[in-house]
Design a protein around this nucleic acid. Structure first.
Lengths: 112, 112
DNA sequence: TACATATTTAACTTTCCAGTTAAATAACGG
DNA sequence: CCGTTATTTAACTGGAAAGTTAAATATGTA
């Protein structure tokens, strides 16, 4: 899978987004990250592996703890991709599309 | 699934992103959208259903054609979510993180 | 050494996703 | 009405994802 797909897939899960939100406030251990969720620790561990594969987090070992840290850098590329489409949800084009939705141009029949 | 998850999941596929890129240039029929890909028409049809479920496209019927149109509006919310993390990949915080990565602070052992 | 804590790995289940081919549906044009 | 074109639905397959419990691994402490 390409990087962009991996990034988007990683954040397409509410648990993983919540984990990132928590890490935005600072480093945390796996246990601390797991605490708010009703799922088992192995399940969280796997979510972390997905985030790690997407390079959205990094882990550092401190004794028996794994301290997780956010690495938002892959989100830059994702944000850039989305940004391409900004003109479609704002400005002239969006208003035009909106207008056309309400006032369809006479639908020219396609002959062949 | 929540809206944001649905949106991210929809764009986490290169074929679907390519379809959106094509639609950014204007409306297209299902057949025209399918043409560039090496996959069957039913497969494309399902990709379109995923995009439609995410409300990233809309379809309009013209005789036996389904004309697809982009609706980037859901990307706004996705972009906003990503934007929250911008400060982590640029500016002070990113530089600090980078610095710390290179010069780890004396790792204080956790006692208990 | 032995125990407790933190986390991962293994093995398994269930569900979802993307692809296939073949058949169904819908609309046009002669 | 019939054949052609456009697209979807059905039925099936293979593989990946997310969850579970139980066992393994690693480290600090008594």
């Amino acid at each position: 899978m390409d990087r962009l797909s991996v990034t988007f897939a990683a954040v397409a899960d509410p648990t993983r987004r919540a984990i990132l939100a928590r890490l935005a406030k600072g480093e945390a251990t796996v246990g601390a990250l797991a605490a708010p969720f009703a799922i088992s620790l192995p399940a969280v561990s796997r979510h972390l592996r997905v985030l790690q594969r997407a390079r959205l987090i990094e882990q550092r070992v401190d004794a028996q703890w794994r301290l997780c840290r956010i690495n938002a850098e892959p989100l830059k590329e994702a944000g850039d991709w989305i940004e391409q489409y900004r003109r479609f949800w704002e400005g002239r084009l969006a208003r035009l599309a909106n207008y056309l939705e309400r006032h369809p141009p006479t639908p020219k029949r396609r002959k062949r």
